[in-house]
Design a protein around this nucleic acid. Structure first.
Lengths: 352, 352
DNA sequence: AAGGTCTACGTTAACGTTAACCCAGCTGAC
DNA sequence: GTCAGCTGGGTTAACGTTAACGTAGACCTT
């Protein structure tokens, strides 16, 4: 299934009037090219009547400014680059679209490079490719803090901003207060009467992972509860399933906080396999509020993050680096929100 | 969390030797600019020794050809554009990355525009933006056949190829044989002993929708079974849930084929709510084999499609339009594969 | 009225690359 | 020896845009 369209456009320019240049506009408007340029760029030094006339001619001739020529002359790029992990994980994908749409709204073209693995080598290659485009600034959407060393001293001279990279790599970005949210989850479960909360964490080396562990741990410690060792997953439902199986081998596990929805789904599956009732015998909380989590069985209690907003703010911060004026709220943390559904309840009386 | 990097790059060129031009290379190599240009573009007319010397100088000076200047002079673009629906649906997202990586492998930069809604107006605007980048060819990833009219006569002069658009808009593209796969699903269920199969379809106006309905219907008719009216969903788990509820109000429903995994998840949830056992009393099949479907409760029988391959082939077809040589297998259909897991079984004896 | 400021333009010369054409020397054929 | 054809180059002039500078007239100031 397909849509075809003109095979043209291989050889035009020069003789084709459909791509009029500034010169033709100037001629038909009876002004100099410089005046047209000033009109295009909304610069002063042109009278109102002249300006209007030039505008009209541009419209008539269907004039499109030539980005290449402008970039060549000014040495300034009108595109932003995005380097992202080629993952369909809900968070990164939504963030990608958030950055992209915000960039386009700000008048930039968007160049995307997706990487299957983020290493020093792949990052450098991607940066090199972007510097040829050329782009004015690069946003790296890398949920892996293992990429931190890769990020630390990228050789390129491009202004760069990484979403979700650890703080010590640079200055702050629109980030989510995972620590606070993880604490809220833990307190929610504790408030239901659970003695403690077990945690299925994300993989070490992913940024959100440490913060969620920290929030969960401090909430537990603040309540004077034992802190069981977290079990490390890899974001997949499979790893959640395996973690769930291991946890259910322990007799006293009544509450599990998984670091994303997919792993929570895996835990849910493990509970089903072991004939453990959710939420009667086991409470489960996820993280992300992906589009499906309301339809798990039972609907998942989880934490909603506004990934699109994160992307948008990241872009604004990136633009601020190259001297754009940006909205003032950009530095505030995005606060995630606990969504209580049906996978959490008080623990069974015997274990209360 | 962030990575900072040099604020430089706002004003350089001219005096900065880190961006050497062809002229400097020519000077230090002791040849003319034209010779350097020939070396860059691998054109004949340069002796082996000279060629090697120029190559070495380029490496030494860390020369990067200036894309803008080249595009300006040649009038040819070295980027492809992608217009896609801003959805985190598994299929479109993977396809996007497939197109992107194939394009980059072919030496093109990739410009992405994501659209929240695909209409005539948004498409035209996106095409206009891409034509300024400029891009050589545009790939539209639009799973909506409702965008067909929007696609039919796009005014721009850019070569365009749409993935998943209906056939009558243009020539063929790497596509999936949904009809065959849907028939296979139906036959699988019939083979288990079900009298008929109910279908929760995708929304009208999405391309895969009609084909899956067609495959399901013809398989049913070929077996001489009744064809119940399909229930239309919108790909979300919610719509699957509602469809499931409606289906379960009918006493004789034993098998449901949902047009994607999320809707199958919704049906699964409906079965749980109605205390209908899966697969004991109800068999369910999904479509897509998303990353989670193996961890639903029970693990979902579904159909796997290779979305990355679809994207790759779409790009090749697009490049073929602008005269690139492409692999010969590009025109063959991608065959999806039935993955049998635990949501399908013979119907209960009473309804057999 | 002479000088000083503005405002609204115009001229010139690039930015880095390549298409089109030119040229010098060598080889071989006659 | 001379002419055609090849090989390995070089020269020139753009591509469309804008920075930097120039200038002519209008409008004050004193």
């Amino acid at each position: 299934m397909t849509a075809d369209h003109t095979r043209a456009g291989e050889r035009r320019r020069q003789t084709d009037r459909s791509v009029a240049g500034i010169a033709e506009v100037a001629r038909t408007a009876g002004v100099s090219m410089m005046t047209v340029s000033r009109v295009i760029n909304d610069r002063p030094g042109v009278g109102d009547k002249t300006r209007e006339r030039v505008r009209q001619v541009m419209k008539d001739l269907n004039f499109q400014p030539n980005t290449s020529a402008r970039a060549l002359k000014t040495g300034k790029a009108s595109a932003v680059g995005i380097i992202c992990l080629a993952t369909t994980l809900y968070g990164p994908a939504v963030t990608l679209f958030g950055v992209e749409q915000a960039a386009r709204a700000a008048g930039y073209a968007v160049n995307v490079i997706s990487l299957n693995t983020i290493t020093r080598a792949t990052l450098e290659q991607a940066m090199a490719q972007l510097s040829q485009v050329p782009v004015a600034v690069v946003v790296i959407i890398s949920p892996l803090s293992s990429s931190a060393e890769s990020l630390r001293d990228l050789p390129g001279k491009l202004p760069t901003l990484a979403v979700w990279a650890p703080t010590d790599v640079g200055m702050s970005v629109a980030a989510v207060d995972h620590q606070h949210a993880a604490a809220a989850v833990t307190q929610h479960l504790l408030g239901l009467g659970h003695r403690t909360v077990h945690h299925v964490s994300g993989p070490a080396g992913w940024t959100g992972t440490e913060q969620r562990i920290e929030g969960w741990r401090t909430a537990l410690e603040a309540a004077g509860r034992p802190v069981p060792p977290p079990i490390e997953g890899d974001w997949t439902a499979r790893s959640g399933f395996e973690a769930g199986l291991r946890l259910l081998d322990q007799p006293d596990v009544t509450a599990v906080f998984a670091a994303n929805d997919q792993m929570a789904l895996g835990v849910l599956r493990a509970a089903r396999v072991r004939r453990v009732e959710v939420p009667g015998q086991l409470s489960i909380v996820g993280y992300d509020d992906g589009p499906d989590s309301a339809y798990y069985s039972p609907p998942l209690t989880t934490v909603r993050q506004d990934f699109a907003l994160i992307g948008e703010r990241a872009l604004w911060l990136a633009l601020a680096k190259i001297g754009h004026s940006t909205p003032p709220t950009v530095d505030t943390l995005v606060e995630p929100e606990l969504i209580v559904r049906e996978t959490t309840a008080p623990p069974p009386a015997t274990l209360r």
